[in-house]
Simulated assay, not measured.
Amino acid sequence: MAEPIDLAYPFTGRWRVRNSPANRVPSHGTASFASSHAIDFVPVDAGGRTAPITFDSLVRPEPPERFPGFGRPVLAPVAGVVVAAHDAESDHPAHRGLPSVRYALTQRRRAAAGWVALAGNHVLVETRGVLIALCHLRRGSVTVRRGQRVHVGDALGRCGNSGNSTEPHVHLQAVDDRDIRRATAVPLTFHGHLPRDGEIVTADAPH
Rank of each mutant, 00 (worst) to 15 (best):
G69K: 12
T50Q: 08
P21D: 01
R16H: 11
H95Q: 08
A8S: 05
R72I: 06
P26W: 11
H92A: 13
R66H: 06
F11R: 00
A76K: 04
A34E: 13
S90Q: 12
D45P: 12
P64D: 06
P68A: 12
T12M: 07
W15T: 10
L7F: 04
A79V: 08
S20I: 11
G80D: 14
A94C: 04
A79R: 15
P73V: 05
R49P: 04
P52A: 04
S35F: 01
G97L: 03
P64L: 11
F55K: 09
W15N: 03
D87K: 05
L98H: 10
A31R: 14
A94E: 04
A94P: 00
D45H: 11
V25A: 09
L75M: 00
H37T: 12
G71A: 11
S27V: 10
P21V: 06
A94T: 14
P93M: 04
P52W: 09
V44I: 06
H86E: 14
L98S: 04
G97D: 01
L75I: 00
F67N: 08
D40I: 13
T54Y: 04
F33C: 07
S90H: 11
V74F: 08
P64F: 02
P93C: 08
F55P: 07
P77L: 00
E3A: 13
L7G: 08
V44G: 13
P99S: 01
F70N: 01
G97P: 07
D45T: 11
D91T: 03
A31S: 15
E65C: 09
D56Q: 14
S27L: 05
R96K: 05
P64Q: 07
E89G: 01
T50A: 06
D6V: 03
A8V: 05
P73T: 00
A84E: 12
H95D: 01
F33S: 12
E62Q: 15
Y9F: 15
P64M: 08
F41I: 11
P21L: 01
E62K: 11
A31W: 11
S90P: 10
G71W: 12
V42Y: 15
R72V: 08
A51F: 02
V44C: 07
N19P: 03
R66L: 09
A84N: 05
G13M: 02
A79D: 13
R16A: 15
D56M: 08
G13Y: 06
H37L: 08
